[in-house]
Amino acid sequence: MSNPMAISRQAGSLLEQARGLALAKFNADQSGKNKDKVCAVAISVVDSSAHFELFSGAPGYGELTGIVMGGGASKQSASQLITHKLTQFLGSEEGGGFSNEQITRHGYDAHGRGAMNCAEPKMYYLLKEHEAQTVRNWVVIPFNYTADQQLVYNAPCKNCRRWVYRHFHPLSGLIARAQKGPEAFEA
């Protein structure tokens, strides 16, 4: 698809679809809304009816662990597998080249979370490792709530910017630029 108008329409359509999915996810969430909780929505560009939603932090890790356990793994082995694979990926050059401290405790972003605690690496793991999908065929669109309880697009943080735009579909970056401008790419 090389027609700029068609690309813009597709990005807008995916953004609205993702907004609805994130809103439903937040509304069904029992752990509470806060301005730091991010819901990453991934939508397939091959089949836009295919989608996944995951939260950041402990709620997202719990969700992902439950999904992996659904494949027959124990909670401990699922948790160990996820942690190992994400640490390996995020520590690699293709995953941002984070140190172990940056992965688990304090990355580059001011939010103070380690790179592993964001929603985007959990989504990457879900798609690539668990669902055996080509991550480049998926658009990732993150959202969070403002202090006044408004659902807003939330560009990948400085931790995730180190790798997200290289791995997910280019529409992820186009949406980020359209919603947040050039700062959505600042490292």
Rank of each mutant, 00 (worst) to 15 (best):
A78I: 06
K122L: 15
Y124R: 03
D47L: 04
G95Q: 05
A40T: 10
C157G: 07
N100Q: 13
G66E: 14
C39E: 00
N27T: 14
H167L: 15
C39M: 07
T104H: 13
S56F: 12
Y61Q: 02
C160N: 10
R19M: 04
D148V: 07
G96M: 03
S31K: 03
Y165V: 12
R166A: 14
A40D: 11
A115P: 13
R19H: 05
S79W: 04
N34W: 07
T104W: 11
E94L: 10
H130W: 08
V38F: 11
T65K: 06
C39P: 07
Q102D: 04
H84E: 07
W138Q: 00
C160A: 15
L14A: 02
G114S: 14
Q17P: 01
V152C: 07
T65I: 14
Q88M: 05
D29S: 12
G70N: 09
Q179I: 03
G173S: 08
N117W: 11
H51L: 08
L81I: 02
L90H: 02
P156E: 01
W138M: 00
V45F: 00
S31R: 05
K33M: 09
C160L: 12
S77L: 10
G72H: 06
E53K: 00
S48P: 15
A178I: 13
F52A: 12
F143H: 03
H167N: 14
Y61A: 06
R177Y: 15
Y61C: 01
P121L: 09
P170A: 10
S99F: 09
N34Y: 06
Y165D: 06
E16N: 04
M69N: 07
E186R: 04
S56G: 04
L126I: 01
G173D: 12
H111Q: 06
A147I: 10
A50V: 02
K75D: 08
A119R: 06
R166E: 15
K158E: 07
K25M: 05
R177G: 05
K37Q: 12
A184E: 09
R161V: 13
N144G: 08
G70C: 13
K25L: 03
A115W: 06
I7V: 11
G173A: 14
Q88T: 14
A42L: 05
V45R: 00
Y145L: 07
L23Y: 06
Y165M: 10
F168T: 02
N3V: 07
V152I: 15
Q150L: 11
A178E: 15
T134H: 05
Q150E: 15
G97E: 01
H111V: 06
A147V: 10
K158V: 08
L171M: 15
A11S: 09
T146M: 11
V135E: 01
S99R: 03
G62Q: 08
